[in-house]
Every structure is written in C-alpha cells, then in structure tokens.
Design a protein around this nucleic acid. Structure first.
Lengths: 256, 256
DNA sequence: AAGTGGTCTAGACCACTCA
DNA sequence: GAGTGGTCTAGACCACTTG
C-alpha cells in the first residue's frame, strides 16, 4: 500500500492515504501522520485559515487510531502548522497572519511593539555560494544562492540593513517583488515550512556601506544580528546578517 | 479524600496521594498530577539524579490511568522537572548539573562556548522594593527584596556586572555565600522551580560604577541584559540587569 | 529475563461553539 | 442539538537498558 508521503494530489481514496501499512517502518506512525499533514499544507492542498478534517476522520483516512492522530496533531500544533480550537475545529495556521508574521523578528521599539514593517530591496543577485555561506547554510560547493540586500524602515526611516542569503533551490525564480516580503511570506509562497532558528547578537560598528544606508556616521555603534532559520526538516532555509540601529530599541529574547 | 497537594510528607499510604477524588475539580487530572510531581521535587522528597517510581506505580498511587500519568510526565519533562530514558526510568532533573546550570545564560565566547563561571559578590542588601522593581517583579508595595551586585569573570577578568533583585519571600535568610551562586543553584536551594524567562537586550554605555567594576573607560559600549525569570507558576523569581562587555562575545538566542 | 519508557489501540464522556 | 477538540480510561505490544 502506498505511503501517504507519495500522495500530494487530491485523490480522495482512503487507500491512497493509509499509512497503517508502514507500521513496520522505523518511523513512528504519529510522526508519519504529522509529516503527511505538513506535506499537504506545504503543497497547498490545505490552505491557510481553512479547517482540516476532524480527528476521527483523519484517523480513519490515515488508518491509525484516534489517539495516534491526536498525538500527530498535538505535534503539528506545537510546530505551528495548525491551530486547534475546542468546539470549532483544526485550522491551517497562516504564517503570514498578523500574529505569526513577526515570528523571527525580535526587535522591539521603545513602546515594546515590534519595529516597522516597510522593506526596501536594494539589490538582488543569484550566484554561487561563497565559503561563509557554505558553512552557515550547510550547502555543497557550487550550489546556487540568492543574495538580497534590503532595508527595513520604521516611520519611513531606515533602522536595519539586511543581507539575506537563500538557497536558490528552495526559492526558484524569486522575483524582486517577492524579495521585498518578509521571510515567512517568501517561505509560504514557495511551500517552505519554517521551524527553529538561531540568532547570534553582537555589537559592532557601521561599515561605510552600512552607515550610508542607515544614514548615520561611519563607525556608529550597531547591533549585528546573525540569524539562521531552518525548515521543519532542519535544513537551513535562510541566513540573514542584520545591521541594526538600536536607539530606543531592544532585542527581546524568550528563555525556556 | 485528601488532595495530593496537601501531602508532602513521606507517608506511603496510597490513599493520601490519590487525586482521583478531585476528578470533578476544574483542573484536569494530568495537571494535578504534574503539580504533585513538582511539589515533591520542590520539597526535596525526590532528590536530583534519583529515579522516581515508574508510570504504572505512579498512576496507581495517584489513582489515575496510565495514559493520564504519562501525559503528566510528558509535561514535567517538557518543563525540565524530570528526564526520561527508555529502558532506564524517570529521573529528577538536576537544575545545577552541567547541562542545565547555564539554562538562562545566553552569553557565548568567540569559540561558541559559554562565558566564564566565576562570580564575585560586591554587595548584598535586603530592603523594601522601589518602583521599578515593583513593576518588573509584580510585587506589592512595601514587599521586601534582596539586592545583589556581583561580577562575572572569565579567565579571571570581569566581563559582566550584574544587579540581581530577588523577592525576599522566596529566598529567606539568603547568605553572602549563596548569593555567589548561579540563579539556578540559588533557586534549587530554596525549592524554587524555575520556568520561562524573558530578556531585553540593548546597547548602552558604561556608567562610572559599571566602568570601574569592569575595568574599562567610562562610556565604553556595553550590552545591557534586562532579564526576568519566572517560576513554573509564572511568578517572577528574579530580575537581573546585566552590563556586559561584548568584545569577542555574542548573545545566542533560540527562535521557535 | 525483568523492568522501564515509547508507541498504539479503541473506545468513553465532557466542554465548548455555533446554527 | 450536532459537531468539534479536550480529557480520561484500560489495556496491548515494542524497544531499550541492565543485571
């Protein structure tokens, strides 16, 4: 019997989706079920904001018990793939919704609110990886990357210069327009599901190009934000080096 | 039948521990069971590194089903109360062990390793809260706090001046010696179970007292680390303001 | 071989939402 | 009242560790 992982089409036959035949596989059923859910969301079979079938139906469709399906859904919710509400249903999380869009943005203004939303693309280039990118993004030599230099603005004023590097494989034919979107929006357009990230925050001084872009003197103290975001499958999906003016702003870190 | 929450003594009677009678309580059984586990660990009934009874025994003792007890243990593990290892058992996590002690310390050296461990207490004072402390620690007016000023050193050199504020109620009769321990060690000595934290990172300049403590010029650029750590019950347990030299160091933030 | 946690089943009833 | 997720039960078998 075919694994659910091979079936991203819209066939309704329960047989195509049944994963109970792979119960002798090494991977636990609840993880396979979670994978199947992720797959459908990534492929766009299930759109953001829409309800997915209820637990019992999904369990029947995938050929697992309700308890196992629940465990898969619990995991999917923890990974922000879905949102569940008692009495209402299970909904596909929209990563571009107001409460999710700033998921990886830790910069806050004096008022505690997140900093500005405007983004201006300065340059966009597809090329071959250099050594640093290779290390940071775990790519092979000669793989292609997309380099984006862009500016973030708050109230019309630039506060952060970003150098974004993306594996070209994940974002084929990226346009200038898409490059001006936030990371989560770009990812969603290409069916990339984002998971954990890691950011290294340090203090630095504005190099000439950074200073002119941010409209400050050369050598101005800035915060350097060196961030890598991984996909749900733990593959690097973005490396961003940010150069941020911190007057009146702070970086908010959640500790667990 | 008595709730488990009232029983922190070492009585072995299963009746004293049974929480099934509170199944009509608003609080779900698995949360009550988790609370009971936390209580015993905080009270020192179960010591770090020791094994606790297996799932089936705990389920019988608490009067719940194995599935419910498992859910409680899953939660306790996510909260770092216990560590479970297949085939071996469930063990009380030692918050002062090497891999846990630096849980809230995000400062890393050039090599990616955590910064130095030495701590030198400069001053220790019990007093009444001021306004800022009141806000940060959610305390009532006139509550008592302990203020600790201390220095962190790496390779014998100071790199961070810390102003730590603790609610005196949680840390009765804190000694100078205990004040030189890390947060997690202090908390463990007083049976305080720590949960989430939140840190605001900004850039600042060393005030005169900070500069002299860190052996740098006044006005030297530093990173300000404004951190609040909460207990597992979401009550503030510590407010720390750190003033940190960042030459060659960075702040590591995990994004989820 | 015995004991542990990890996975999985197949139900039950409750709390909540909405038409 | 019908449908949803949330909680809870009472087992089964498997994978892993240790004596």
């Amino acid at each position: 019997m075919a694994s659910i992982l091979e079936c991203t089409n819209s066939s309704k036959s329960i047989f195509d989706h049944d994963i109970s035949a792979s119960r002798f596989s090494a991977r636990p059923l609840y993880l396979q079920a979670r994978d199947a859910i992720a797959q459908r969301i990534a492929a766009g079979d299930w759109k953001p904001h829409t309800a997915i079938p209820n637990e019992a139906d999904l369990a029947r469709e995938f050929g697992v018990s309700p308890g196992t399906m629940r465990k898969a859904l619990d995991l999917a919710e923890a990974e922000r793939l879905v949102t569940r509400r008692q009495g209402r249903g299970t909904f596909v999380t929209d990563p571009t919704s107001d409460d999710q869009v700033e998921r990886y943005n830790c910069i806050r203004g004096r008022d505690g609110k997140r900093a500005g939303k405007e983004i201006e693309v300065l340059s966009l280039l597809e090329t071959t990886v250099n050594e640093r990118e290779c290390l940071r993004l775990h790519l092979r030599l000669r793989e292609r990357v997309i380099r984006i230099r862009r500016l973030r603005l708050a109230d019309g004023r630039p506060y952060m210069l970003e150098d974004v590097v993306l594996p070209a494989r994940l974002y084929p034919n990226l346009t200038h327009e898409t490059a001006s979107e936030r990371t989560v929006v770009m990812a969603q357009k290409f069916g990339v599901l984002l998971g954990k990230g890691e950011e290294r925050v340090s203090i630095g001084n504005a190099a000439p190009d950074v200073a002119s872009a941010l409209q400050v003197d050369e050598g101005h103290t800035i915060m350097r934000l060196d961030r890598v975001i991984y996909t749900l499958q733990d593959k690097p999906a973005e490396w961003r080096m940010g150069h941020c003016l911190m007057d009146g702003r702070y970086y908010l870190s959640e500790l667990r």
